[in-house]
Design a protein around this nucleic acid. Structure first.
Lengths: 92, 92
DNA sequence: ACAGTAATTGGCTATTTTGCCAAATAGCCA
DNA sequence: TGGCTATTTGGCAAAATAGCCAATTACTGT
């Protein structure tokens, strides 16, 4: 993997996280898995909007999902992404 | 600071980092400070483009600068932002 | 099969981001 | 002052992103 490709890959993952709603979602999934409707309730946006946020995180490889009955539960694959929070609070 | 404001703030900082060129810049500044012209040489883009990338990082509070003669040297304020790299390489 | 709930997808518009060029600013040296 | 280099800023067009609505898919229970 070239250096360029590595920066592209990292940027893709960071871009996936770089949204207030998606950071909120990651925080919630760090506690336990949630279905889309639970997250929608907490966020208050349209369900399609929440679903699209989730697919951004899934495409980046940060979260995964499983189907149960007619619901889809999402879970956090890499809890380490949240370690970043400690660094960020030190900024400014 | 409300939870919403915290997510906004974190997203702003992550968005500032979420670009291949800006991640490259942070990597270089982690070794030592650099002037804009040195970074431009390494990156190969227009100097105005590099300057704008730098101002995005500066506005986010991640880097700082100092003037020396007619050059501007940039330096990394929060090396901890690079700790994130170790987490990202584990993804996918 | 039918109705109901959960989720995703397509389409659309508004907003933001990106990166170039050109112009403006600032500091150096002769 | 004038010319040179380094940097920033404004403006613009292309591309990406966000979030809503409507339509579709999928699974449940009757």
């Amino acid at each position: 993997m070239t250096a360029d490709a590595r920066y592209e890959h990292m940027a893709m993952i960071m871009k996936a996280m770089a949204h207030p709603t998606r950071l909120f979602i990651l925080d919630k999934l760090n506690e336990k898995e949630h279905c889309v409707c639970e997250l929608q309730e907490m966020i208050g946006a349209d369900m399609s909007t929440v679903s699209k946020h989730l697919s951004v995180l899934k495409n980046a490889g940060i979260i995964d999902n499983r189907k149960q009955n007619n619901m889809v539960f999402y879970s956090l694959l890499c809890p380490c992404v949240l370690d970043f929070y400690q660094c960020i609070v030190k900024i400014k």
